[in-house]
């Protein structure tokens, strides 16, 4: 199974990491979209399992969560989805989700089962390193990499402690706020990348508010090892719900644009 380490070592430019909510707008369309994204040049996938109360997400991803849940998405189906993606191509997959779903499944079993399905890491939006103990052992036991978030208001000492606990990459939040497309990159992100680069060798991947090819280029130039684009892509799904068959090609087109720019 392809690791983050291999992927970052092979890449000559910043990794392109699209984010999707699994099963948005429905299982089959979602599968077609993600496959199209892979073919268009995604280096790593960041996949979300829909939660009823996503407090770190803006309106675009909230709506995607509701679409997925309404279309019948659940934990078992999410696992099947990942297996199908891995059967299509061996690409690293990071999960990004909320703690309650993992806790209810049973943390140790969740990590084991999803590692077996083919994920490389599980990032929990509402679990900070202060409670990392609850997930580090299960992650290690399952052979998963660990990923935690750093935000622009994270003090450097704390950022160091976070970096020490990340084996996959550091999920670097570009702004103070929730997920969602933005016109401009936050002016906080470049200093944050510089600060992280001075304290750690773990790859720095930037997400939240990354919306355009220009943003991706600016982040790559600032030293980011990966760019994570979520809401902007999810918005393509939202805007084309009346013609679902057209979505994979439209998503692929956007990803190619970003890839080319990087």
């Amino acid at each position: 199974m392809k690791t983050y380490k291999q992927t970052f070592a092979e890449l000559k430019q910043a990794a392109l990491i699209p984010f999707f909510v699994i099963g948005d707008p429905d299982f089959d369309t979602s599968l077609a979209i993600v496959k199209a994204a892979i073919d268009a040049g995604a280096d790593i996938l960041e996949l979300g399992i829909a939660f009823s109360d996503p407090i770190a997400d803006g309106p675009t991803i909230q709506k995607a969560d509701i679409r997925a849940i309404d279309a019948g998405m659940n934990i078992q189906k999410a696992k099947d989805f990942i297996k199908k993606i891995k059967a299509y191509k061996d690409i690293p997959i990071g999960l990004l989700m909320y703690y309650n779903l993992i806790y209810q499944y049973g943390t140790e079993k969740f990590f084991a089962d999803f590692a077996a399905a083919g994920v490389n890491s599980v990032l929990i939006a509402d679990l900070s390193i202060d409670d990392a103990d609850e997930v580090l052992a299960p992650a290690q036991k399952a052979g998963l990499d660990t990923v935690f978030m750093v935000t622009p208001n994270t003090e450097t000492e704390r950022a160091k402690r976070i970096a020490e606990k990340c084996t996959g990459f550091i999920y670097t939040v570009s702004l103070l706020g929730v997920t969602g497309g933005r016109d401009q990159l936050s002016d906080m992100i470049k200093p944050l990348i510089t600060r992280l680069k001075s304290i750690t060798d773990v790859p720095v991947c930037v997400g939240f508010g990354v919306s355009t090819p220009k943003h991706a280029v600016q982040l790559a130039q600032a030293g980011a090892d990966g760019v994570i684009i979520g809401s902007r892509i999810v918005k393509i799904i939202e805007d084309n719900l009346n013609d679902k068959k057209s979505i994979p090609a439209k998503v692929a087109e956007f990803i190619k644009e970003i890839k080319k720019a990087i």
């Binding site: 407090i55 770190a56 900070s128 202060d130 978030m149 750093v150 994270t154």
Partner: peptide, 18 residues
């Protein structure tokens, strides 16, 4: 930690910790 037995804690996104 803000615990009451096993309950409580602060399960929030990193941005809220400060």
């Amino acid at each position: 930690k803000g615990r009451f037995g096993q309950f409580g804690g602060f399960y929030v996104p990193e941005v809220l910790i400060p």
